[in-house]
């Protein structure tokens, strides 16, 4: 498989995406931002529609649009006195509807909508991989630089604010980082399935460890290995790469849940050893 250029690009891009998504996934799970991720990823369809209608690169338009939507979700839920899930429910449906409308108006009939929605192993060019590398580096840098602040804010936002930490900056920063990471992952995983990459690795880690270092280690391992395996499965069975990756992640999550120290039978087994 690796003899083919498209497979090499998919593997390099996939591993980079897996690394950054698994890192962000930790905060998505502990801060309960799973629905935010889903909202932003679906809103990307609106951005794609704007790009097609305006004649600019659909993913560039989706990146800018998703960053704006993520800031809107953050602002409305913090300042607008509307629950976060309500805001997301409204914004992502409206953005998807906008996408459908604009794709129709732009008469982009030759656009492979299925690859946008469910990902394609054939979709990445080397320039896409370069963009993924730059975004992954910037997103990872943000999470690493503000890791302890993100951790404090995720655990106890009020005391973090009382300690003088830049709570709003870090919160909005995380949302924007999520948005751009989602957008660069779309070609490989697809709009519908990309949010799974932001949830499952962290959720699997939470099943296995009760310390954030362990959760991060498991999250990164699960993310990278499942994306790699999912790409192989996508190639061998000729299915959408997003579906293969997400199903592999789901199996890994079930395995982590089954062997979790939280399970009573696992605690008994440990004691008996």
């Amino acid at each position: 498989m690796l003899a083919y250029g498209f497979a090499q690009r998919a593997l390099v891009g996939g591993v980079l995406i897996a690394l950054v998504c698994s890192l962000i996934s930790f905060f998505v799970v502990v801060r309960r931002l799973a629905f935010v991720g889903m909202g932003i990823s679906h809103a990307a369809f609106g951005g794609v529609g704007i790009g097609l209608a305006a004649g600019i690169d659909p993913l560039l338009a989706a990146g800018l649009f998703c960053a704006a939507v993520s800031l809107g979700i953050g602002w409305f839920s913090r300042r607008g006195r509307v629950h976060e899930d309500t805001v997301i429910g409204i914004l992502f449906a409206a953005a998807m509807a906008l996408g459908v409308l604009l794709v129709r108006l732009a008469k982009a009939y030759n656009l492979d909508l299925m690859s946008y929605l469910f990902g394609s192993i054939l979709a990445l060019s080397w320039s896409d991989v370069s963009v993924i590398a730059v975004v992954a580096a910037l997103a990872s840098a943000f999470v690493i630089l503000f890791f302890k602040e993100l951790l404090f804010i995720s655990f106890d936002e009020e005391t973090a604010a009382a300690s003088g930490l830049p709570v709003s900056f870090v919160y909005y920063g995380l949302l924007v980082v999520m948005a751009v990471t989602i957008v660069v992952s779309i070609k490989l995983v697809g709009i519908v399935l990309v949010s799974a990459l932001l949830v499952i690795p962290g959720a699997a880690g939470m099943q296995v460890s009760r310390n954030y270092r362990g959760v991060l280690a498991v999250s990164l391992t699960v993310g990278v290995s499942c994306v790699t395996l999912g790409l192989y499965l996508s190639y061998w069975f000729d299915v959408a790469s997003g579906a293969a990756i997400v199903l592999t992640l789901f199996v890994a999550f079930l395995a982590c849940m089954a062997f979790s120290p939280r399970r009573a039978y696992m605690r008994r087994w440990r004691r008996e050893r």
Partner: peptide, 8 residues
């Protein structure tokens, strides 16, 4: 906080 929040 979530009782499973991974902090010591």
């Amino acid at each position: 906080f979530d009782p499973y929040f991974p902090l010591s």
